[in-house]
Amino acid sequence: MSTAALRVHSVWKRFGARDALAGVSLEAPRGACFALLGHNGSGKTTLLRILSTLWQPTEGDIEVLGYSLAKDASAIRARIGVVLDRHLLPRDFSLRDGLRMYADLHAVPDAAARIESLAARLGLARRLRDPVRTFSRGMGQRASICRALLHDPEVLLLDEPFTGLDAAALDVTESVIEEIKAAGRTVVLVTHDLERAARLATHAVVLSNGRKVFEGDPVAAASVAGSAS
């Protein structure tokens, strides 16, 4: 089994004539908090969606936890948690039922207790009975993190997890990411919040126009990303 959590080798993604990713390679060790930085349209979200198995690369090889994305996508999905720009929960369900549905799909044992504890940790315990459609953007974002953590994923992929959160929710989300790191899980963080990225990440990559332009220390990466945008 590979020691790298993520191995991305010469990955291209084309949408028509446009290269959203142009030969990106990177490797994230297990337990790393890996920040993907760059301006809008740099290819960060495209790479995250490919890592999440939602999109296929046009060219190149990807391994997540030693599993090939081309051959073992289902095994990868069992081991990753993904937070995207939408919460992905059924809007007419209560938060509890929505999380229960995903817990069933992931065969989470003792799902009820897991849901209670995650909702409490993310400040949503009192909203478990409420329909998801009544949630604000920030609550939806926290519900999304609950959903992504249900099955205790080995790799957590976060696309702009801080967007739309108030100060208290920002602190909770940041401390949750710290706990995940402390538990030895790997985190991939796509964000425009360079300050937080520099604080949370252990490794960083800056993308620009689909190409990797920097890889290394998160503080230096944040500086590169800041000057590029």
Partner: peptide, 14 residues
Amino acid sequence: GPQCGASPSATSPT
């Protein structure tokens, strides 16, 4: 263990 990383021993569903 850590609250969010505590393993619920998730398994791949059949």
